[in-house]
Design a protein around this nucleic acid. Structure first.
Lengths: 225, 225
DNA sequence: TGTACATCAGTGAACGCGCGTTCACTGATGTAC
DNA sequence: TGTACATCAGTGAACGCGCGTTCACTGATGTAC
């Protein structure tokens, strides 16, 4: 898979179309006609549609995970041995995402949307690919979260991390649509950067919530099974 | 579309397969063979695959929205004029979902998963259908949220509601997988009811977060475009 | 009570279509001697 | 410098397949007279 103009044009077109429509709703014919490239070129350069999906993710995730590792190194250096706080950890992640060098002004929105799709549309092969390739920075982020929330039980922490991932993945993967709705309703313009920074206090507060669950008797005593 | 055994069998099979695999990854041949029914029966009874998707949603959303309206009536009655609190509002929603009479023990998980898919896979026709049919209870829920969070600006409230919906839709739509991962990691069994009740304090704390956004200068001054 | 007709759930087979993939081929460039 | 061969990006056309949908048909039940 040596680099040629054709390879980049295919990756650019695929990235945009996947972000707009999802993976299975985007055909190779759409991609190659947008890229102004022969239909057979995808299989020639990448081997299969699934391999093209992996290549699209690798192109932005590989530099992103390097940026993120550096941000975590930097944060741990600044904290000098003490564990970084929850807000610091979340901000390091957010800033890394927002500051990633982008190919164009829509880059960050596409990047976020693809991450969201990876989580919600994951088709087995993609989940496996991402786990194999990027478990290192992901595991490090999880470790930092654990150190930043020592008051939580492992089970509480697990579920709250899922809630955080969900809020982020969902909002970011629909960010264009949600910005449009907000503009129609309130006439307010917004940016992906702004959404990302609004997420941080929301997520941090959720992680720190002290409320005990109120378990209504009806729920405890009447499981459906 | 008069009711016959065939109609119910198709709806049961479609509901389960949609929840497992999503809409476009589930073919009519899968549905009709699982339902032990002729392929042409779907188009005979429902008219099209899209109309079948609508019927699957209507079958559980119509009774759910009735239950929800009653729960809100009840809550407003108990509060006697004062606006219900955020926790009360979220609990009314959660309890309505959890207490919905289910066809079988997996019912609630399927119900949640379909709601999550409706949000994340929405294909235009489904979004339009849901907006037309169920805007009333949805709008009422939004109104209650507004009264319960008078301290938030309209823009803050808008984004935080999206974060809540995202955390809920995402977690619920992957609840089976997430419960499995938790069991493998920590040996802990869990239920959809429990997840739903863990969500409430997380979301309520996020909605109430007072932190101001920390806008790093680098982000404010270096938009990509 | 008997006959003719209408209605309707359900069926088997085929339709056309778009899909990812494959294959034989071209033409430009590089390399060996 | 010239010739023969190898490599490789790219192409045009076709492949087989599974998809949603359609259509002519069956057979049971209900209704009118």
């Amino acid at each position: 898979m040596a680099h040629s103009d054709t390879v980049d044009r295919i990756l650019d077109a695929a990235e945009e179309l996947f972000a707009e429509r999802g993976f299975s709703e985007t055909s190779l014919r759409m991609i190659t006609s947008k890229a102004k490239v022969n239909l057979a070129a995808v299989n020639y350069h990448f081997g299969s549609k699934n391999a093209l999906i992996h290549a699209v993710f690798a192109r932005f995730l590989t530099p992103f995970s390097a940026t993120l590792e550096r941000a975590f190194d930097d944060l741990e250096g600044r904290c000098g041995g003490a564990p970084p706080t929850l807000n610091q950890t979340l901000l390091a992640l957010t800033e890394s995402a927002v500051r990633m060098p982008q190919r164009n002004e829509r880059g960050i929105s596409i990047f976020m949307r693809l991450l969201g799709l990876a989580y919600t549309q994951s088709q087995g092969h993609l989940r496996r690919f991402l786990e194999e390739e990027y478990s290192q920075p992901f595991g490090r982020f999880m470790g930092l979260l654990k150190e930043a929330t020592p008051q939580l039980s492992a089970v509480d922490r697990y579920w709250r991390i899922q809630f955080m991932l969900g809020a982020t993945a969902f909002t970011m993967s629909s960010s264009d649509a949600l910005q449009g709705i907000l503009y129609n309703k309130l006439g307010v313009e917004s940016s992906v950067e702004e959404i990302a920074l609004r997420l941080v206090p929301f997520l941090a507060a959720g992680m720190r919530a002290e409320d005990q669950m109120v378990m209504p008797a009806s729920v405890v005593t009447s499981p459906a099974g």
